[in-house]
Design a protein around this nucleic acid. Sequence first.
DNA 1: TAGATTGTTAATCGATTAACAATC
DNA 2: TAGATTGTTAATCGATTAACAATC
Lengths: 206, 206
Amino acid sequence: MGDRLTVGVATRLSRYLQVLTQAKKMGRERISSQEISEYTNINATQIRRDLSGFGKFGKRGVGYSIDVLLAEIRKILRTQGQHNIALFGAGRLGHAIASSSVFADHGFNIAAVFDTDAGKVGQSIGNLEVSDYAELKDVVHERNIIVGVLAVPATAAQAVTNDLVDAGVKIIFNYSEALLNVPADVTVHTTNPAAELLYALYFYLA
Amino acid sequence: MGDRLTVGVATRLSRYLQVLTQAKKMGRERISSQEISEYTNINATQIRRDLSGFGKFGKRGVGYSIDVLLAEIRKILRTQGQHNIALFGAGRLGHAIASSSVFADHGFNIAAVFDTDAGKVGQSIGNLEVSDYAELKDVVHERNIIVGVLAVPATAAQAVTNDLVDAGVKIIFNYSEALLNVPADVTVHTTNPAAELLYALYFYLA
DNA sequence: TAGATTGTTAATCGATTAACAATC
DNA sequence: TAGATTGTTAATCGATTAACAATC
């Protein structure tokens, strides 16, 4: 099947990957659809159905081998390789992101850090140095950066976005609350913690 | 209708609220279903359908008044009041969260900050002081804290979670990558930036 | 009036769920 | 063998989409 996955399937497979990665880190070797369900809030039958569409990866009465499932899902999502991303903003949030393993665990390598504050150029953040913002376009091309992660104030987000779009980046991950205007071929993901809390709160109060 | 919203509707309404809040901040007064669609990636027809189930909030040919829609959705989600939350972890991520307006914008007040490192007690973070972790249970009750936000290392997340569950907190917002075990009546939301990137990447590569 | 956008219908597609045989 | 869990079916429900009259 060279068919494109539906949005729903791709989203769910990504979430299984997240759980499997973490379960492996915790030393687990096998996992059942029921357990994945508890961590993702996705129905266990649906998990089995999603997976069985691509092959028989599990063992009845036993569950799924985490290594096998990780490899299979990465194959399906075609995300086995390493991908370079650039981080914008060397403030507290930028440092927190750079020092976290959450991107590295999934094959995303932070290949550059930028800050519009020229005074920060050359400062180190993790094992990287803050690059000169003027070199954005060159760095994106040289290091084949396909994702821009925005850890900048909301007031600066649109300007950085425009420069990223200009440089040809097609995926933007927005940690600010700004609403970003981009061309139709650019994808923006805005993190949304308060909205998720409101939703949890509704079911708590109701 | 005293009926409970479906999970899907509650999720989408929360996302509309996020966009409306930000659009208002940017000085906008009106917005169309098409614009909300561009920012949320939710189909415009579905947005109108979600809203029209509760009343006729828009004006044909014009769009929706942002103020009207904000008030109506808050009414529907019953999230008009202020809610107290507690932040765990006074590191870089904790500071970034405390200094952001993302929770305050939606009526969430950070009423306490804790850190398991006793050396940090009394330090200020924003206009709060880090409280003594030993007082967790008392503070949760006194300040009526209903959400715990975890900005702690993955290795510490389960222990803090257990203490929160013990103190009666039913909603946990997990910024670490740890898989948390909780009783069935406790809701955990784990942020998942890498999984969302994987999903965006699939559609970029395909 | 002309243009824009809502509110609503109807048709289709995907998600959800229960149930259970297969089998490890 | 007994217990557990997958793989799969079938039935239902909600999401998605196109289309368009109503109306601002």
